Simulated scan of single mutants.
Amino acid sequence: MSSRLLPRDIGILGYGSTQYVKKTQKPLITELAEAGRAALASAGLKKSDIDGIAIGAFELPPDNTVTTAEQLGLSPSWAYLTTGGGAGPVASVIQAIRAIEAGQATTVLCVAGDVYDVDGLFKLLDNFGDALTSYGTPHGFGGANGLFGIVQRKHMETYGTRREDLGRISVDQRANARANPAALLRGPMTIDDYLNARMIADPIRLFDCVLPCAGAEAVIVGALDRAPAGKGVRVLSGYEQHNHPAGEISPLRGGWELFRDRLYDDAGLGPKDMQFVQAYDDYPIMAAIQIEDLGFCEKGEVGPFLGANTMTFDGSFPLNTGGGQLSCGQCGAGGGMIGLTEAVRQLRHEGEGRQVPNATRGLVSGYGMIGYGHGLSTSSVILERAS
């Protein structure tokens, strides 16, 4: 696919999140509405300003984007339902910008979330798609832990990656989460805590896994001249890629490697120019693979890279500055947007106790949609403080 620059006058005007909880009696529509309402307040806009909507939610069917718009009292001229799992929310922002550029909408609410717990997650994964329903579950598919345990073991044996290296991600992100009152897991964690945690699916242990929860995240996309003074966030570049590498079981790479060069070229920047990274972190190994595939280190060198850097918000390589899903929790499809809202928070300099000093640009990466033996979808955007 050839590069086509995103328009520089359209970007993110505001963001919003709900409080994450382990269990809730709230319906999904309430979580989506609360995140959307917070994003509107952040953007200084009214509900009547919204004429486009994009939704990411595994639990939405049999409803869809249009029926949700009905429940929210919106009358959109553009509606989009994400298809890429945890990569879908980031991709929805790219699609929203294109829709505004084409004149299909002026102001788009991009929202993602779900309302499930651990049991709900297991039920979801058993019926995630025909490949798992027909060929995974009947043969003892134990969910994502087993799948990514294989990926992690393969990476360790292929490149010599150590659990101590991957543990740096969990430990430093927990340090970030301690400055985030919205994170569900804020207790202290040491590398020994990580290494000695309960085994889940060898070599995956407890602190390699996300906590399923309920919640939602949202951003508002529109013309940057409508953003509150000094608060607009420009999307310099963005791409998505699905089912790469095609047919490979338990791959140690993803679609990021296909669009990485275009992503940086379009932005006129490189990996060293990123002041933070918000990477989809369903497991530390997948955050590590994104670090490699997005060019922050060579393939197979992520172990030494992690050992040489600190991933805290004030460290040498700020990663998932709010704690990421590993410490905040994973609210289903909303896990694909938590990095985006955190990035916008950082670029608006609203990070409070976890603010990256003088942050002006960063990268957000999405990943998701488990297929037969591998995740199918990837996405990334590079963002910049518009002022």
Results as ranks from 00 to 15, higher is better:
Thr310Asp: 12
Met311His: 12
Met311Thr: 11
Phe313Leu: 08
Phe313Cys: 13
Asp314Tyr: 02
Gly315His: 02
Ser316Asn: 10
Phe317Asn: 05
Phe317Thr: 02
Phe317Trp: 11
Pro318Leu: 06
Leu319Asp: 01
Thr321Phe: 07
Gly322Ala: 14
Gly322His: 12
Gly323Leu: 00
Gly323Gln: 01
Gly324Tyr: 01
Gly324Asp: 05
Gln325Ile: 14
Gly329Ser: 08
Gln330Leu: 13
Cys331Asp: 12
Gly332Glu: 02
Gly332Gln: 05
Gly332Cys: 06
Ala333Ile: 11
Gly334Arg: 07
Met337Thr: 08
Ile338Gln: 13
Leu340Phe: 08
Thr341Gly: 04
Glu342Pro: 03
Glu342Gly: 01
Ala343Tyr: 00
Val344Ile: 13
Val344Lys: 10
Gln346Asn: 08
Gln346Met: 07
Glu350Thr: 11
Gly351Pro: 06
Glu352Trp: 15
Gly353Glu: 14
Arg354Thr: 11
Val356Tyr: 00
Val356Met: 09
Val356Asp: 00
Asn358Gly: 12
Val364Glu: 00
Ser365Phe: 03
Tyr367Glu: 10
Gly368Ser: 06
Tyr372Met: 14
Tyr372Asn: 13
Gly373Tyr: 02
Ser377Asn: 12
Ser377Cys: 14
Thr378Leu: 10
Thr378His: 15
Ser379Ile: 08
Ser379Pro: 06
Ile382Asp: 09
Ile382Lys: 04
Leu383Asp: 02
Glu384Leu: 04
Glu384Ser: 10
Glu384Asp: 04
Ala386Ile: 04
